[in-house]
Nucleic acid binder design. Structure first.
Length: 646
RNA sequence: GCCGGUGUAGCUCAGUUGGCCAGAGCAGCUGAUUUGUAAUCAGCUGGUCGGGGGUUCGAAUCCCUCCACCGGCUCCA
């Protein structure tokens, strides 16, 4: 008998050689029906594998990430089987599970595969799933595996196989389909109850644009039909929060083909919102010892040659701006740091002056690839809430921690509870794209990791995500559709100070090199507004709302009283508008609700006589009759609750 | 940039076996109504059917090309 330790700590005695599914059965039939995979000593494997030694076991179901990914991975195989049925001879590349479902990259050769073909594949998958075909695992010697796929004429699998180590290669088969696969898989196809193929898209083989482009088919499956329906419903709801849709509806921003792709136009309401966010941060930064600076939108090519950006990005950026002098070239500024370095250099600096913190809402222009533009989250002209901190090497960690405080304060104030802190380091393999000495990189990496640890941030490391001049700490949040975006970023940089030969005089009366910290708590105003918009579904906090209340006279007879309270509320610093259209009150309320105005003040005969207003709150309804002072107190309290979070 | 899809009024959308002056709702304008917590009624205005080229007696509809947008891929200082 072997000892199996379950997640609750209990130990179960089991016979060697029984399957994990059988262990599940011995616990309960219900559990057994739901088990998708087994996690044995931390490794996720088939529930049909057998018990060989004492172990820690947890049985994974739909509720576990490992369970989900196993079902989806198996679904990818099921889809591949259906595809081979209709398109014999297609070449399959890879078919993994992803955050929301799975995909398979397929080389369709001469077939043409269209979106409308998804339905018939889906139907075939449903048919195959009902056949209850078991997933069978088989260890295959490398040469045999290669021979199999050479015979099948699949160059992608052969290429994958050639990189694998002999003795660790497994095939999985179900029905008429066999695939090279590490696993794990569900016991049989009948576990896949609800199937939806979502979309097709192009994807390069191995993610390299030099390689052939394959057709990627995305799908998602569930162990229950109702879960699929719920998922599709959630997708619909998410679409309603899409910042591109809300931005248009709430008249925050727009794009114009004439102005140019990826160049947002901020409408009055959007501009006001943005101004409030900027002022909020300016105030926070002023307290933290930052100084505002202003730099121009273009700069001489020499600036970027010096910074290294020209060499790195010159080819892909907006082309140079020429002048009557043939020896001159200017560039639209793609980042603010080189300018700030020159501000630092404008006078000699003493260690007593450091840290120097220069902040600027600097608008920058980058020629992003056309296919990459996306609403406000990816644009060609945007404003960074940028600042550069110049400090001594000894001050780096402390300064870095202070910046983390600001970022956390900003996220907390705007009610972002879900975010990830990503430590972005160099790629392990390819170091050619980075500049600067090994020694400086290591110093910078350590500073970030230590600061993050001391601030007790929960972090994860992403290799290959560093900037070319240094590592970063990036704050990532998800948008309505689950896409991840980088918002705030903090970067330690030893390179630019060197390139610009920045110096300060130390206590020893010698010249020293300062260290730079680049940081932007919002990231960019554009992206932040986009993510904020989706996060709050357009219901902005009161302190950010341009129109905090709309005054709704019951009829035109009360317009003059509306004017009166509007001016009184303005004296109380409350931002209002009067809806004096010749419409019924129901219509005015409906329009105010749809435009997501936090408060509505309904005034008629009674209110005019009593010098009161009837207050209605967005999404909540009637709060009753009150005086303007009472109303203003409510607003003050709401704003207090929104802002005082530290 | 690459693959696939989409493009009709300010917005949401109808209209393709090629054929009457291209339609609807909302928004806007004008008038009537003077209204009590999510859409008052009537009339009117508004469209180079994304741009350009072609096929045809005839194109929103078919073909070519360019542009923009959407979903991905690659990229992201």
């Amino acid at each position: 008998m072997l000892k199996v330790t379950l997640p609750d700590g209990s130990i179960k005695e089991c016979e060697k050689g029984i399957t994990f599914l059988e262990i599940a059965k011995s616990i309960s039939e219900g559990l057994a029906r739901n088990v998708l995979a087994a996690q044995v000593d931390g490794e996720v494997i088939d529930s049909m594998r057998t018990l060989e030694k004492d172990c820690q076991l947890s049985l994974l179901t739909w509720k576990d990430e490992g369970g989900k990914s196993t079902l989806w991975h198996s679904s990818a195989h099921l889809m591949a089987e259906a595809l081979e049925f209709y398109y014999p001879g297609i070449k399959l590349a890879i078919g993994p599970s992803v955050t929301n479902g799975f995909y398979y990259d397929v080389d369709f050769m001469d077939y043409s595969f269209k979106e409308e073909d998804l339905v018939k594949i889906e139907e075939k998958m449903k048919e195959l799933s009902k056949q209850k075909n078991p997933f069978q695992r088989r260890v295959v010697p490398k040469n045999e595996a290669i021979a199999y796929f050479k015979e099948k004429n699949d160059p992608y699998k052969v290429e994958l196989l050639e990189e694998l180590e002999d003795g660790h290669i497994t095939f999985y088969s179900q029905g008429n389909f066999t695939d090279l696969c590490r696993g794990p898989h569900i016991p049989d196809t009948s576990y896949i109850k609800a199937i939806k193929l979502m979309s097709i898209a192009g994807a390069y083989w191995r993610g390299d644009e030099k390689n052939k482009q394959l057709t990627r088919i995305y799908g998602i499956t569930f162990p229950k039909q109702s879960e699929l329906e719920e998922y599709l419903h959630r997708l619909e709801e998410a679409k309603k929060r899409d910042h591109r849709k809300l931005g248009k509806e709430l008249e925050l921003f727009t794009f114009s083909q004439k102005v140019g792709q990826g160049l947002p136009l901020w409408l009055p309401k959007g501009a006001e919102l943005r101004e409030r966010l900027e002022n909020f941060l300016k105030k926070t930064q002023k307290k933290a010892g930052y100084q505002q600076v202003i730099t121009p939108h273009i700069a001489n090519k020499e600036l970027y040659v010096c910074s290294g950006h020209y060499e790195k990005y010159g080819e892909d950026s907006f082309k140079a701006i020429l002048t009557p002098d043939p020896n001159e070239e200017f560039y639209l500024k793609p980042m603010n740091c080189p300018h700030h370095c020159e501000i630092y250099k404008s006078k000699p600096r003493s260690y007593k002056d450091l840290p120097a913190r220069f902040a600027e809402f600097g608008t920058v222009y980058r020629y992003e690839q056309s296919g990459e533009l996306h609403g406000l989250t990816r644009v060609r002209g945007f404003t960074q809430d940028d600042a550069h901190i110049f400090c001594t090497p000894e001050q780096v960690k402390e300064e870095f921690k202070k910046v983390i405080d600001i970022v956390l304060y900003v996220l907390k104030t705007l009610d972002f509870k879900q975010f990830k802190a990503q430590i972005s380091l160099r790629s392990k393999e390819d170091r050619s794209k980075y500049i600067g000495s090994e020694e400086n990189w290591i110093k910078a990496e350590n500073a970030i990791i230590e600061a993050a640890n001391e601030k007790e941030l929960s972090t994860f490391i992403a290799y290959g995500e560093a900037a070319f001049y240094g590592p970063k700490l990036d704050f990532m949040v998800q948008d309505a559709l689950g896409r991840e975006w980088q918002l705030g970023t903090i970067q330690v940089d030893y390179n630019l100070p060197e390139r610009f030969e920045l110096e300060y005089i130390g206590a020893d009366n010698q010249k020293h090199r300062p260290v730079m910290i680049h940081r932007a708590p919002f990231g960019s105003m554009e992206r932040f507004v986009a993510v904020l918009l989706e996060h709050c579904a357009g219901d902005f906090p009161l302190w950010l709302s341009s129109e905090q209340a709309v005054i709704l006279p019951i009829s035109e007879k009360f317009n003059s009283y509306a004017e009166e309270i509007s001016s009184q509320l303005a004296d109380l610093d409350i931002r209002t508008r009067i809806d004096d259209r010749n419409e019924k009150i129901g219509k005015k309320i409906r329009d105010a609700e749809l435009s997501k105005i936090p408060f509505m003040l309904i005034i008629g005969e009674k209110e005019m006589n009593e010098k009161t207003c009837s207050v209605r709150q967005r999404h909540k309804g009637d709060l009753g009759n009150m005086t303007l002072i009472q109303f203003s107190d409510i607003l003050k309290e709401v704003v207090q609750n929104e802002l005082v979070k530290l």
